[in-house]
Amino acid sequence: MTSIISINGLGKSYAGGMRALDDVSLEIEKGEILALLGPNGAGKTTLISAICGLITPTEGTISVGGHDTIRSFRAARNLIGLVPQEITIEPFETVLNTVRLSRGLFGKPRNEAYLEQVLKDLSLWDKKDTPCMALSGGMKRRVLIAKALSHEPQVLFLDEPTAGVDVSLRRDMWEMVGRLRESGVTIILTTHYIEEAEEMADRIGVINKGKLLLVEDKDKLMTQLGRKQLILSLQSPVKDIPEALSEYKLQRGKTDDVLQYDYDARSERTGITRLVADMAAAGLSVRDVESRQSSLEDVFLTLVEEGQP
């Protein structure tokens, strides 16, 4: 894989002394979908803003497609499309005109056929002559995507693409992102929604307090860091967990006849064999066993907490 974006030692301090980004280095591969996860104020938007040229980094370098974002900003920015987090759109302008403006700003010659295709893909074509203020929130967000795609970028930044978007629209958005990726566009998205990252991303970066805590393949991350849970359904309800089993820190399930055992799938000895044997010795007979993979959300929370100084 070749990287399309290289970030090296990126840092950003604001005048007030706020450290928004701290020594961030990251390689983003061509054609992948990278999700940046992090709590509010973690630095996700700052990172995107630095790559897109909205803020000037205090230190470090960024190159997009091999072009430095400061020294060869034109070549670098030509490759990038940005969909901002806030819905910022000229209210009185029509959909088609605002998309035309975006294409023009990137110095691309007019190509009405391409813009028609973009608007059709986003189900906006029949709204092309509508002023943006008359559109629903979801449509406005799609107009922003159309604007970002208007100049045929190779990298698309989606800053919280589904914030405040209803469930069915979120599904549509995910499908659209999938189609874009098939067409070869590299996609970087930030999100609060772990399920979104889980659903779409190839790799996941976790960012908190301006530091990039880790970047990992999604599947690897889930298996490597994932804590697993063993759900043990018992033959008969149990009032008190026997003393002999205290070392396993068992938790009660929803009903009296369910016990839960948390274990680390990464460790060599998960303790399951011993637990089952000890349970039998304690007179508990197991009717059913189920194991549950912890979600990315748990992984994320663990990381963010571990990342605290």
Binding site: L54, R74, R77, S102
Partner: peptide, 15 residues
Amino acid sequence: PKFIGTIYEVLTAPL
């Protein structure tokens, strides 16, 4: 554009 935020587009364009 500064007020409504659409200035982002001008600032991220190769301009």
